[in-house]
Design a protein around this nucleic acid. Structure first.
Lengths: 336, 336
DNA sequence: AAGACGAATGAAAAGGATTACATATCATGG
DNA sequence: CCATGATATGTAATCCTTTTCATTCGTCTT
């Protein structure tokens, strides 16, 4: 294993100079730097990360907290985090919030300096505990955020996305637009619901409680089926459904099938996220697209800034969403 | 930050003794050890992992190579690895083999001591390059393995699983059993195919080339649809389909729907893996169950042994698979 | 009773990089 | 021509733990 001392000897300089060259210090003369770079190249020297970590008192590790890596949505965002993390030299420490308490995890991480920072992908909108951690430790919230805390975050504009999805359905001529939301307390859930409500009001359509249903906290498929059955088995059922996740939308399509209701003609369905589910069965799902990879990449970029001690130019980043119409939506035929 | 020196002072012993207590060395008298443990407890001392890594020349990091974390199958196995890894004190460095060459990655990892070992989840059955790395670096293959190398591995018995899936379909009275395999060169693919072939031979059924189709290397959904169409649109089509992954099976079900062929009556379908796809649409998929979590857990356990320098009692671990009949299979009705 | 041995503990080196501080060199201004 | 300051480089301390080697002390052997 070639060390910095070997390079120093080969280049005829001191270890300090080699270190300075490695770290792009401006305090070293160009001719010297050149000699050092050549020696580094020749010996194919790579600094020992452990030694560097010890000296700099960092770990080059980032804690990532998400409910479940098995969920394609989180997996996609995580993929984005991971890709950039590699480029930035970080190793990720992934913890499932389904198995462990996020606050305890964060506390331990900070106390024992296990990570240089953390990315939080799941938090309830009204949590307050996060503040005291983000005050003294680099933390970025990704996709969700807690309103009472000023912890940095990156997400899409869930209100607008919800508004647009609903407006799209209204624009298809559908006036009995239902929503399948979730019983959780996440910010995205609330905002999508508000977008839905406002879009209907603005279109002069009154809200109907019987067109609103909820799946359980984790959008489980089973509970989504349940919720969809509730809405679709009514006599005066919705003719459109805005589902706040693709898994829910898929469940809605399946239930419609069971009940002999045609999708998209009798009921049009819009999902959310644009994960792989959307194109697994016909009708392929029309859905609001979240830029999962970009959300993850941006989160780790922001965290990297925080770790470096640079203030963020923008602590509340909003990334653009999209919409794609596939097979699960169509204009309402008046003669139906 | 409390260091080992603080503990030593508090306990009135030397740092060496504290270190020995921490590492369960037998060379320390019980009364002394007790005093030290109390001091550790009182100061809530936790050793600095960076310093330990440097001194021991290890990183407590494991490289995990898999094609795509977005694929639920790999995500499940990874979940198992991750859970045990945490308990064992490892951080995982996840790399996608779709974006990077596994050999180059392994080479770099070893050269620069970036990880203490590696878990490989994707390798072609006839690769030889792995041997020279596993000779000098702890490596465990998980789910797949290269036959020419004696690198340790853990997997299910894919031959038996393939045999059993096929036999099950034959047992339902179906004699025109097709298979949708993959164009890849993985060991599991070959073995499942062999199991299929032998099960048919043993049942006295001759192999028909026209009942065999392949999706592309990565079992992509689109290519699976293609393969299913190929098989099911023939005049004398199969009355059962063994699909070597659940995604393929789902595609088969969708294609059958398109073609107006009833599942499970006219064609029964068996999948493989038992991932979430199996219960997303009706008919829920009958499938061969892989113990994904257990595969991952075992892989990291084996690797931990290797890293510790202990020889493995069993270098080729086979974990039990299972089978679950859901809605996509039923006995063939003779009057059909 | 002296020497040998084993057990328990301590002192200090080692691991490899960063960095505070010291020093050397050179140019500039008075 | 010397003092001053800037620039470039070197020396050595530092980060914290593990581990080698040395030392101490008590016990056993002969």
């Amino acid at each position: 294993m070639v060390t910095i001392a070997d390079v120093a000897k080969a280049a005829g300089v001191s270890v300090a100079t080699v270190s300075r060259v490695m770290n792009h210090s401006s305090l070293v003369a160009e001719p010297t730097a050149k000699v050092v770079r050549e020696a580094i190249e020749r010996l194919s020297y790579v600094p020992n990360q452990q030694a560097r970590n010890l000296r700099r008192n960092e770990s080059k590790t980032v804690l990532v907290l998400l409910p479940n890596i098995t969920n394609p949505y989180y997996a996609n965002v995580f993929d984005g985090i991971n890709e950039r993390a590699q480029a930035l030299g970080y190793t990720l420490f992934l913890c499932s919030t389904e198995r462990q308490d996020p606050e305890a995890l964060l506390k331990e991480t900070i106390e024992y300096k296990r990570a240089d920072g953390a990315i939080l992908m799941h938090i309830d909108r009204d949590e307050r505990w996060l503040q005291k951690y983000s005050d003294r430790f680099p933390i970025v919230q990704c996709c969700e955020y807690a309103a009472p805390c000023d912890t940095a975050h990156v997400s899409v504009d869930n209100y607008r996305a919800g508004y647009e999805a609903t407006s799209y359905l209204v624009g298809l001529g559908r006036r009995k637009v239902g929503i399948i939301s979730s019983a959780n307390r996440m910010m995205s859930t609330l905002q999508r619901m508000r977008g839905y409500q406002d879009a209907l009001s603005d279109a002069g359509i009154s809200l109907e409680d019987r067109y609103i249903a909820c799946s359980d906290e984790s959008y489980s498929y089973m509970s989504s089926l349940q919720a969809a059955r509730e809405l679709l088995s009514q006599p005066d059922r919705p003719d459109a459904l805005f589902c706040i996740s693709d898994a829910i939308a898929l469940a809605a399509v399946v239930v419609a099938g069971e009940l002999g209701i045609s999708v998209p003609e009798e009921v049009s369905v819009v999902g959310f996220d644009d994960v792989i589910y959307t194109q697994m069965i016909h009708p392929y799902l029309s859905t609001m697209i979240q830029p999962c990879l970009a959300l993850g990449e941006r989160a780790i970029d922001m965290l990297d800034q925080l770790i470096a001690g640079h203030p963020l130019e923008n602590r509340n980043v909003v990334l653009p969403h999209g919409f794609i119409a596939r097979e699960s939506t169509c204009p309402l035929r008046e003669d139906a």
